[in-house]
Amino acid sequence: MKDFNYSAPKTVKEAISLLGSLQGEVKVLCGGQSMLVLMKQGMLAPEHIVDIKGISELDYIRFSEEKGLTIGALATHGAVEKSPIVKEKYPVLAEMEDNLAVVQTRTWGTIGGNVCHGDPAADPPAVFIALSSKYKLMGKKERIVNAEDFYKDLLEVDLEHGELLVEVQVPPMPANSGVAQEKLMVQKGDMGIVGAAAFVTVNPSTGICEDARIVLTNVASIPFRAKGSEKVLIGKKIDEKLLEEAGQIASEEVDPPADTHGSEEYRRDMARVFLKRATAKALQRAQQKN
């Protein structure tokens, strides 16, 4: 690991002014669970590291009926996992955390760091996109971006020089909606060979699917929104056959990598299976609410 200049601002204001003034490659460090690995492997060697762990104003998980859930960038995975309000209102996030790495990683790793890392295999971005979440960025000015639009390419996100992600905003869950996440793990807590997060709303009287947002992980260079599959489901009553069709579409649309953990062919097949499984579970949850 190469030497770097280190600074640790205590407020968002201080951090932003620092980030704006530093020249050369700057990286924001928080939990470090993804970034330090890249630095250790020599894939990343920033000149400056701005450690935001001390900005306590960003360490929060809040909920209101109007705004929904807001998670400060410093909230750890462990905090999300254990949060009573998360468990009550967005249990899918607690479930996701249970399968996210190991307890040490969850204790150090933060939501902000995770979503900014831009790993298409990571779970939180997919779940946040399925939930129509937005990210709040602070720089010279404040920007709110859709989580979905934030991801540009492998490990590349829409963060400009001098910008800091400060908050994840998850809207309130609509009535008659359900959400679920599933992934294929070899080790509990690993990134998953393929994963899926699905959100559906169902009309209680007709049983027809009114909305669906399905995001697959580790099948493309960014979290993959399975729009073709969603289209098939929306406006219809979801049954086994329809799910199979939606899964089939996803297996054709994804552009998965082939690596040591799975071939392209297997990943395509698993995209089908996990799209079906996550959607079926989300559907069941939506129906239970009715």
Binding site: V37, V102, Q187, G189, D190, T260, H261
Partner: peptide, 22 residues
Amino acid sequence: IWDKGYLKNGTFLDYKMPTVQD
């Protein structure tokens, strides 16, 4: 995974040793 003489998964991220969770 030794692919043509090169180790492809020489980290605990890629070498799937079961942990206590498994």
